[in-house]
Amino acid sequence: MNIFRLSGDMLHLISFLVLMYRMRGQRSCRGVSLKSQILFLIVFCCRYLDLFFSFVSLYNTMMKIFFISATATIVYWMLTKYRSSYDMDNDKLHGDGSFMGHLPPHGVLGYIIVPCFLLALIWNEGFEAFEILWAFSIYLEAVAILPQLFMLQKTKEGEAFTLLYIFCVGAYRGLYIINWIYRYFTEKHYWQPLVWVSGVVQTLLYADFFYYYWIALRDGAKFQLPG
C-alpha cells in the first residue's frame, strides 16, 4: 500500500458517495448512465469472486464489499424509486434497439461485453474460470464509463455532482497509474502488463472530459462539451 493507491481508492470510494448523495438529494438519476452502472456492477461481481476463497487484507475485503453493495444500490435505485427520472433516450448506444426492435442492451452487449470477454479468453493470467473472469473484469472496467461519457456527449452539459462523480473515477484511475510506477520501482517482482495496458486505456478515455472540466473550473463557467 502506498499513498497513491490509498488516495486513488479513497477517491473511488468518494465517487460512489457523491453519486448516491446526488441521487438522494435531487430524488433523480437524470444524467446518470444506467448502462455504465450495470457494467460496473458486473465488473465488481466478476473481479471480487475471490472474496470467497482468498484473503488479502481486511482493507481489501471491506472495500470490495462496499464497491459491490454501493453499485448494487445505485442500480437498484435507478430501476426502482428513481426510474421515472432515468434518461433512457440519452443512454442509448449506436445499435441499441436494432436487434428485432427490442433487447435494449444490444449495443452494450455487442460492442462492450462480448469483445471484453473474447479478449479475456486470449489474454489472461491463467486459463481457468476465475482468471478469465478476472481479466474480463479488468477489460470491462476500462470501458465501462463509455456509456456515461456518451451520455454526457449527447446532453453536452452535466449536472455538477455527476461531473464530480466522473472526475473522481477518472482521478482514481490516474492515481493508480502513479501507484503502478511507484510499485514498479520499489517492489522486486512487480510486473502486471495486463492491468497496466487496460488501466492506461481506461485513464485515456477520461482525457477529453478532464480537459473540458478543467476549462470550466478555471473560467468559472458552465461545463460544456463542444460540438
Binding site: 482468498s54 493470467e125 501507484n179
Partner: peptide, 10 residues
C-alpha cells in the same frame, strides 16, 4: 506468481 501477489489491488 501467486494469486495473492497478482490480484492484491482493487
Amino acid at each position: 506468481k501467486s494469486l495473492l501477489e497478482s490480484h492484491d489491488e482493487l
